[in-house]
Nucleic acid binder design. Sequence first.
DNA 1: TGGTGATAATGAAGCCATTCACTATGAATG
DNA 2: CATTCATAGTGAATGGCTTCATTATCACCA
Lengths: 195, 195
Amino acid sequence: MKPFTMNDDTMNRSTTHSLPRELGSGHELARDESGRLYSVHMRELFEDLHVDMSAVEALGAMKIAGHMLGLLQERWAEKHGLTQGRLGVLFRLYRCGDTPLGDLAANMESTPRNITGLVDHLERDGLVERVPDPSDRRSIRARLTEAGRARIQAVWKEGVDHQFEMVEGFSKDDLAQLRHLCLQLVINARKELGK
Amino acid sequence: MKPFTMNDDTMNRSTTHSLPRELGSGHELARDESGRLYSVHMRELFEDLHVDMSAVEALGAMKIAGHMLGLLQERWAEKHGLTQGRLGVLFRLYRCGDTPLGDLAANMESTPRNITGLVDHLERDGLVERVPDPSDRRSIRARLTEAGRARIQAVWKEGVDHQFEMVEGFSKDDLAQLRHLCLQLVINARKELGK
DNA sequence: TGGTGATAATGAAGCCATTCACTATGAATG
DNA sequence: CATTCATAGTGAATGGCTTCATTATCACCA
């Protein structure tokens, strides 16, 4: 029912095979009549489906961008002997002081169990230590060690510079709009969570 | 140096402790002077840092939104005995016919090794089979079985409806702009990959 | 006071995805 | 041809994250 009864095709290979096998290179980009970018591959995947796919295209683009940004930041953090998650914990402790693990889980996009694991590694590396919470003996606070403080102080500025490079060419309004739309998605997603 | 020498705090708990421990609930949202959403928690994390953090805020919002959307889609796919990745492979095979694994890796946001794993599981579940590529004996094509075709036909419409709910309240222009900004990020990220 | 239910952190098990190494095949060059 | 190099797929090892179950503590109330 789709134009694909031919098995000795030629079109698949000609488009993708010749490209360098790099990250995200499978998506050839073009601009629509209003000058906005779109993925030709994704659009032709949905054509003659007779459904409006602007939502799917937008969400798909966000997924791809988020994925690539995640990999890049992961790669960058790795240069400093860290991961995204551990870097986040470090920065948060640097800004907020000793913090119960549960609060870290609530404030970062994470689960309590995950925070335990991150703090495990940070503690093993001597960047963080666990201290008892005097006001609640169930709770345990993560505290930056001197080494941890030195580490985060040494790298956090470079980290935000790295993010600046990612948004090169974006106007302040672009950034505000991107932030707004993403947070609107967060609101919608929360509603979805309530079934 | 930060206002956090008090260890028997009260403010941390009052804000986060009382909230229901749900996904993404650690981010209280508000609107700026132009009516756009922002995360108060994130903004106060960066205040008195004397750096323009609009880029970090935007990227952070995208990270959170992407993460939540991913979890929601994962949860939805799970209802049909699938995962995001397997669903993606199924849909692609449904639209494009038999496809070499490497091409799947290039066109989806994935690595060759990952596609092997996804196809392993799909084959185990009887939804996909591996067929040799007549034109290249190194290559192996993934092919939808009848069960696989039935499965994807049964769920794909509901899948896009699910995505429509996510963008409730978004204008077509909002969606186009979100798509555009994300793809611009992809372009920037690609440049970053070339060191 | 003693019991009931929520909460904090963690152990155990599992999934997804990544990297590196390896095999088999194809393509290109002498 | 034979050598060489690139490519397709996969095994092995690793890491991050999630869910479920468990232990210890707290908070509330009869």
